[in-house]
Simulated scan of single mutants.
Amino acid sequence: MTATIVETPVDVSTVDARVVRRRLGPGRRIPFAFWIGPALILAIWSAGSATGLIPPAILTAPWDVVIAFEDQWVNHDLLGNILASLERAVLGLALGVVTGAALAVISGLSRIGESLVDGPIQIKRSVPTLALIPLFIAWFGIGEEMKVLTIALITLVPIYVHTHNGLRSIDGKYAELAETIGIGRGAFVRHIVLPGALPGFLLGMRFAVTSSMLGLVVVEQYNAVAGVGHMITLAEQYGQTDVIVVGLVIYGVFGYCADAAVRLTGRKVLAWRRTLED
């Protein structure tokens, strides 16, 4: 008696999709996962300070930082310093984002625009913006204009690079489809090209908000009369390491929250686009 083996057809595409998902995707999103890493760092910092593995001369204990924060808030103008720093960062970031995005559109949608814009931007990428601060001081003085323009120039480059790359990465089949169904160039740019470049723009925003914090840290060391950097400079003169750590923590919170806001915006705006992040 011969046994008959019945083969059940297997959907290979479904299996491949499951394998790829298991290998590359993060699976079910963990609630508040974005804060697990910082909480772990805080726990290690606290444990190290409590056990003496991290001496106060190396890094102030978290509870001493909290006390210093309260002292700066009650007895000094910590809120005013925070608002001054935020104003500089927001103004510089806004100017850099608008300028970088506009240049990317000009360069990404026009060969002539690319020949005029892309070369100078690439030259700028090879010259650190922070090295230009002495020149900016000679041009604009040491007031707010120099600080805001420095932050703007730092944030301009990542916005331009990633937005330009997004514009140039649009699949050519969409252009062919637009020609086939008779969509005009203006409608094609508005409804296909710009939305297609949005992921690149948002990626550039993540780099830009981090770069704005880097620029803020540096420019606030130059004759600032208010701001977190001004507070750190005074604390350095008086040897107040706990206040210095307060300022560094504030800078870190600024950047972390800004990056989280950009990521959340990306998830909302790009809900139509399945990515590994989702």
Rank of each mutant, 00 (worst) to 15 (best):
I159C: 12
I121C: 12
S13I: 07
A138C: 10
V245H: 04
R88V: 13
V15L: 09
S85W: 01
E144V: 14
M213V: 15
V66P: 00
V65I: 07
R274T: 12
A68V: 04
F254T: 02
A94L: 15
F201I: 11
Q72E: 14
D259V: 14
S13F: 01
G229S: 05
F34Y: 02
A235P: 06
G247Q: 02
P9T: 05
I123D: 06
V228G: 09
R263N: 00
M213G: 08
P199T: 07
A208G: 09
A43C: 04
M1Q: 12
L95H: 07
R206K: 15
L91P: 03
S49D: 11
P26V: 00
V10I: 12
K147H: 04
R267M: 07
N223K: 12
R111S: 14
A261M: 07
P158I: 10
L59Y: 11
G247N: 05
I121H: 09
G172P: 11
E176L: 13
T2M: 08
M1G: 15
L91E: 10
V218W: 02
R111F: 06
G100A: 13
V243M: 02
L214K: 12
I30N: 00
L103G: 08
L59G: 10
I151R: 05
G255W: 01
R267C: 00
S126L: 15
L264D: 01
L216W: 03
I67E: 11
A94W: 11
V98M: 08
A68N: 04
A187Q: 12
V243D: 04
M1V: 14
E220S: 09
R23A: 14
H76G: 02
G215W: 03
T2H: 04
N75R: 12
T233Y: 04
P195R: 10
V225E: 13
T4S: 13
V161P: 05
Y174T: 03
P128C: 11
L91K: 10
L93H: 03
A50F: 04
